[in-house]
């Protein structure tokens, strides 16, 4: 049976993890590779690396990181952040990334999704969508949720599916950072209306939130950062609870 995935997300700046991490047993918690290996050993099903650096050397630094992760980590990983062209994706995949995620660049140039899925296959194209509710309507936002667009979340999600996205990573900006749980109503709607996997993101604070997002939110995978980085939730403990709630997980 296909299992639900648990995905830690690592924010990367200039080749280092950004968000504070609380791993006393790591030699260098700022090294994304060390952290990635630890997550892989502790039951993570996949990893996401989100590059938020803005320097001119960012491209080379990111490629170096992707190579080191692929060398050292034996589970799949996605790379996102600032990817805007077929060439960007080509070099990341050749360096060993399994998937890439595109966000603002896909909104600005939706044809990019078609081009990427035609050249590399849908399976490696994750479209990340950040959205929040404005007057009861879910609107897509850019630049980490700062810039609103006119796009409706559900219409945009359907469009990216038709254009060849293999997966959608939906982050609710209303929930992100609240630790109050995922946006399960919107997630369930996405999961029901679309026929590609949906990754839930934004709002994880406790184990019950993951149970809820898989049952009520019908999510195929759940992504979180700080609850894992600060060891508020251990992935294996989380999976034990999910299993007792009859949610299929890899344990």
């Amino acid at each position: 049976m296909l299992t639900k995935r648990i995905i830690p997300c690592l924010d990367i700046k200039n080749g280092r993890t950004v968000k504070g991490v609380n791993f006393v047993d790591l030699r260098d918690a700022g090294d994304p590779v060390e952290l990635a290996k630890l997550y892989a050993e502790n039951g993570a099903d996949e990893l996401v690396f989100l590059d938020i650096s803005a320097t001119e050397e960012r491209r080379k630094t990111l490629i170096d990181l992707v190579l080191r992760v692929a060398e050292n980590v034996n589970i799949p990983f996605t790379v996102g952040g600032g990817i805007s062209s077929v060439e960007d994706v080509d070099v990341l995949l050749k360096s060993g990334a399994d998937k890439v995620s595109v966000n603002s660049s896909a909104v600005k140039n939706p044809q990019l999704i078609n081009d990427l899925s035609a050249k590399f296959g849908s399976q490696c194209v994750v479209v990340a969508i950040d959205a929040k509710q404005i007057n009861g309507q879910w609107k897509v936002h850019l630049v980490g949720g700062k810039v609103p667009t006119d796009l409706n979340l559900f219409e945009w999600a359907k469009e990216v599916e038709q254009r060849g996205a293999g997966e959608i990573l939906f982050t609710s900006m209303d929930n992100d950072g609240t630790k109050d749980g995922f946006a399960n109503e919107a997630l369930a709607k996405l999961s029901t209306e679309l026929n590609i996997p949906i990754i839930a993101s934004g709002g994880a604070g406790k184990i019950a939130h993951f149970t809820d997002t898989f049952i009520k939110g019908k999510a195929d995978a759940a992504l979180a950062a700080s609850v894992f980085h600060f060891k508020e939730i251990e992935i294996n403990d989380l999976k034990e609870v999910l299993r007792t709630n009859n949610i299929p997980v890899r344990l």
């Binding site: 049976m1 296909l2 995935r5 099903d45 590609i196 996997p197 995978a221």
Partner: peptide, 13 residues
């Protein structure tokens, strides 16, 4: 078929 999500992505037995 479209009875399931396509692609299948993840860990299966």
């Amino acid at each position: 078929s479209n009875k399931v999500k396509v692609p299948q992505i993840g860990w299966n037995q």
